[in-house]
Amino acid sequence: MSNSNFVDYVKIFCRSGKGGAGSIHFRREKFVPKGGPDGGDGGRGGHIYLKGNSQLWTLLHLKYQRHIFAGDGESGSGARCTGKDGEDVYIEVPIGTIARDAETNEMIAEIAEHGQVEMILKGGRGGLGNWNFRTATLQTPRFAQPGEPAQEGYVILELKILADVGLVGFPNAGKSTLLSVVSAAKPKIADYPFTTLVPNLGIVRYRDDRSFVMADIPGIIEGAHEGKGLGLRFLRHIERNSMLLFMVPADSDDIYGQYQILVNELKMYNPELLDKKRALAITKCDLVDEQAKKKISKHLPEIPAVFISSVTGEGIERLKDVLWDNLNQQ
């Protein structure tokens, strides 16, 4: 995913269609000079829907389409003819997209699977024609209902990456390197912080042609829940992962302390993230000897932990086993 093509946040203005007006009409034929009312109803306004599309992975196609309007309903006519309904609009979005009201921040809809359709703005109802208002005492009603007005407003669309395993760690913890080793993904890799500016996805092949999806999330720093670094912009991508793989380099001064900082950032952002399954990968273990590994092992959190090196391949298969076992626990 190139930096310019990955868009995970857009704000668009939407307007549904207004309902058509009911008709005020009376039956007039050659031998029926004073026929009764026969005004038809107006058509409803078009709705605006979100539709999940598994072939999309970004909101880029909406970046420059900031105004979306549905069709208006047409007015009714004589002979009790109902007006044509307004044209509905379907906005195709990637799986994992959430729609929020821009004013209230209330969630309107969430797209979780391919083909799922959710209405975000309802079109106005068509007005009733005068045929509907005839009674025994009011045989020639000269009024009809107007159509309901359209709904409009700004809608925020957010994409949250959907993956089985999310990589969580400080900048330069080796997340992108691991993803490039275990999958065919080719994320940008360099020896400076925040090399990764967009989430990257890779399919990890496992034994017997099985596989799972891994997401490389841009690095977290202390204070990310307050928006520091790339904080809030990417913390939301962690919410949609089934399992979190924390990554801390073996040459860090305090591995347990760094792990606790990462956990605390997730907790401050969304406490529900701590309910997810967790594992720890101590990366760059080719930089330390066996004696150092034994010393590190005495001060690790009580979660599955694996020493790995993406350079030498040490521990990679063991890590896959740990991830697969945790993903498939009942």
Rank of each mutant, 00 (worst) to 15 (best):
P187S: 05
T196A: 06
T196R: 01
P199V: 08
N200D: 15
N200G: 10
L201C: 03
G202N: 04
G202M: 04
R205Q: 13
R205T: 13
R205G: 15
R207L: 07
D209H: 14
F212T: 00
V213L: 13
M214E: 03
G219Y: 01
I220R: 01
I221Y: 00
G223C: 04
G223I: 04
A224E: 02
A224R: 03
E226V: 14
E226R: 14
K228Y: 02
L230V: 13
L230E: 13
R233S: 13
F234I: 06
L235D: 05
I238K: 01
M243R: 09
L244S: 00
F246H: 12
A250Y: 01
A250I: 09
D251S: 15
D253M: 12
I255C: 11
Y256Q: 04
Y256M: 12
Q260K: 12
I261H: 01
I261P: 09
E265I: 03
L273K: 06
L273A: 05
D275N: 14
K276W: 08
K276L: 14
R278C: 07
R278A: 07
A279E: 12
A281R: 07
I282Q: 02
T283I: 10
K284M: 09
K284E: 01
C285N: 05
L287T: 12
D289E: 08
D289M: 05
D289L: 11
D289T: 14
Q291P: 06
A292Q: 15
A292S: 13
K294D: 12
K295Q: 12
K298R: 10
H299L: 14
L300W: 09
P301A: 07
A305T: 10
V306Y: 02
F307T: 06
I316L: 12
L319Y: 02
K320A: 06
K320E: 09
D321H: 08
V322E: 04
